[in-house]
Simulated assay, not measured.
Amino acid sequence: MLERLTEQAKQAVTASEDAALAMGHDSIGTEHLLLGLTSTPGMASELLREHGIESQQVREETIRLLAEKGVPATGSQAAKDALSSIGIDVAEIQRRADDNFGPGAFRFPRPGFTFTPRTKVIFDRTAQEAQALGHQHIDTGHLLLGLLAEREGVAIHVLSRLGAQTPALHQTVLARVTQQAS
């Protein structure tokens, strides 16, 4: 499915990965996908804004919700510990990279497109939504359709807490995606 993504959709997935990394998470969940969609210009971010959903609100509510659920920001401690056990100091590598290439040049670890099971389901639903509409390419609107069709996951809870009526939002997105293809 990933090979069918438009450039904007690829940017949203990359932004999802960046969100997971910034939050210290080892995999990309629905909340990270939502953050990627809100922070990437395109149909999904436009429609979410029209429904009163802004990227900063999503980020703040995601952090709040995950904290309530006790989801730790691991920062891939297991990988760091494994490297440390063989004498590799990730913090020292970070300091040297920052000194030589500028702050933030080296970020460890990169989630590397490790998706949670629910996010994988969303990608499957996205492909199904696009196929049902007869679309060959998958754009940010299709990704949002897949996310909303799942009706579960952290992203849906975040949207609900921000006052989004997800069935109505789904209908709006479906209408816009259908209209855009015409």
Rank of each mutant, 00 (worst) to 15 (best):
P111I: 03
A132M: 11
L35K: 10
L148V: 01
L33W: 02
R95V: 15
S45A: 11
R125S: 01
I53W: 01
H51N: 15
D18W: 03
L65N: 14
V13K: 01
L162W: 13
L5W: 06
T116G: 04
A127M: 10
I28S: 08
A155Y: 01
T62H: 10
V58L: 03
L47T: 10
T126V: 06
D98R: 05
D89E: 09
T140D: 05
Q180F: 10
V177L: 09
D89R: 03
R49D: 01
L66P: 13
D139W: 00
I138G: 02
E61P: 09
L21E: 13
E129D: 07
K80S: 11
R125P: 00
I86S: 04
D98M: 08
L66G: 12
N100W: 12
L145A: 03
I86Y: 12
I28P: 09
L33R: 00
A82W: 06
G141N: 05
I28C: 14
A97Q: 06
S84T: 14
A79L: 14
M23D: 07
A78H: 15
T140C: 00
L147W: 00
Q131G: 12
V158S: 08
P167K: 02
M1C: 08
S160C: 09
Q131F: 07
R110G: 04
I63V: 15
R59H: 14
T62K: 02
I122P: 03
T74K: 09
T126L: 05
G24A: 12
S27G: 07
V58T: 09
T74P: 06
G141W: 08
V13C: 09
G87N: 09
Q56D: 14
P72T: 12
A132R: 09
E92L: 12
A19L: 08
S85C: 07
P103E: 15
L47V: 11
A175K: 14
F113M: 08
K120Q: 08
A67C: 11
G141S: 12
I138L: 10
D26G: 12
R110L: 11
L174C: 02
G134E: 02
Q165N: 15
L145N: 02
N100F: 11
K10I: 06
D18E: 14
G75T: 08
G24Q: 07
A132F: 03
A67I: 00
V158E: 05
